[in-house]
Amino acid sequence: MTKQVFNFKDYIRPRFFPHIWCPGCGHGIVLGSLLRAVHELGLDKNEIVITSGIGCSSRISGYVDFHSLHTIHGRALSFATGVKLSKPHLKAIVPMGDGDALAIGGNHFIHAARRNIDITAIVMNNRIYGMTGGQFSPLSGLDKKATTAPYSTIDRNFDVVELAKSAGATFVARSTVFHANECKNLLKKGISHKGFSVVEILTQCPTYYGRKNKEGDAIQMMEGYKTNTVKIGSKKLEKNPDLIQRGIFIENTDIPEYCEAYDKIIETAMKGKA
């Protein structure tokens, strides 16, 4: 923990502000939480490589004063895998949107989890494709409106937490941008965790998702995160099992991390045992 007072200007590239996100977009709150997490962990900016894909979420990488790799749609985790495996001492953070993480990038998501490579995947779940103007995503869920679902969606949604758990992620957590402090704490734990960590953050898209689905403006959507979510195992779930749970779902330190496992392969190979 650093003693220095947090000032986000120490961690951003201020010339690109104000950012491109819409008024009330939750992504800026994710950005703020991430910067605070990095600050409180006392990480060296030179140690961090932030790798993103395409979409609103991916713009985070350009705003932060870390090594930043803005890649192609859905493939950020594969680029980050190359970064991490080649230089395991670097901290790999990968912010992704719905499509990046679970549509076009779904394969990379489950395989990064399976390998347990030490990457922190931040799934910024706003239940919509924002950059392209409001098409439904694999996180939208049933009976939602989108430009590509004018009569409402018939596609079910993934549960990011369940998917990450079953794919083998060794740290899985969920929070919302309403709970910005909790968000920061979970990011700290995710980044510190040795292995593949997934932090799902519910973040509002008032411009497309909110408007199309009559969920109101950013404020109303954040009120929704307050009322529709509870801490894991809350008693409120007995009355209302549909409430979304927040917190740490899995934190497993027994599974070998991929880069460390590969170091052992190198050791074996160098002894000529291959």
């Binding site: 790798t51 594969s78 680029f79 190359g82 991490k84 080649s86 990379h108």
Partner: peptide
């Protein structure tokens, strides 16, 4: 380092990432 990736696209992504760290 050698890695068998989940697909062809991921392989291309991984080598680009690794090149950027100086490999």
């Amino acid at each position: 380092k050698f890695i068998q990736m989940e697909d062809e696209i991921a392989s291309m992504g991984a080598i680009i990432g690794a090149s950027l760290t100086g490999n």
